[in-house]
């Protein structure tokens, strides 16, 4: 059971590597934002699991809404000529490190 997420990761990597589709450069930022959102959600999920506060619905909706908001911010940033995209990158980035720190504490407590 605990291996399911790892198998999912492996399948994802395999699928992403084998699919015959190249992301157009103009969408590279959306892709990177989506990767960051997924990574952020994963760490948040692991943290919640360890804290025993994990909730499936919160987890999935959190992932989706974060991704969608990040994509929207990127899109409007492009229209406005401002790199709003960086706001999402920094928000996700900061949370990644925070969550990692909390996970570390929970594991080695």
């Amino acid at each position: 059971m605990i291996y399911f997420p790892l198998i999912g990761l492996l399948l994802g990597v395999l699928g992403g590597y084998l699919i015959r589709y190249d992301v157009p450069p103009e969408y590279a930022r959306y892709l990177s934002i989506a990767v960051l959102a997924a990574l952020d959600s994963t760490l948040g999920g692991v943290r919640a699991l360890l804290e025993r506060t994990f909730n499936d619905r919160l987890f999935i909706t959190g992932f989706l809404s974060n991704t969608i908001l990040a994509a929207l911010i990127t899109f409007f940033g492009d229209r406005l000529g401002v790199n709003l995209y960086l706001a999402a990158v920094i928000a996700f980035g900061v949370r990644l490190f925070q969550n990692l720190a909390i996970i570390r504490r929970l594991v080695f407590k």
Binding site: I19, A38, F59
Partner: peptide, 17 residues
């Protein structure tokens, strides 16, 4: 399962990128 789904998406997009 929820974690699996998100990790799948992460792996897929990461590999694609």
């Amino acid at each position: 399962l929820a974690l699996t789904v998100v990790l799948f998406v992460f792996g897929f997009l990461g590999a694609l990128a």
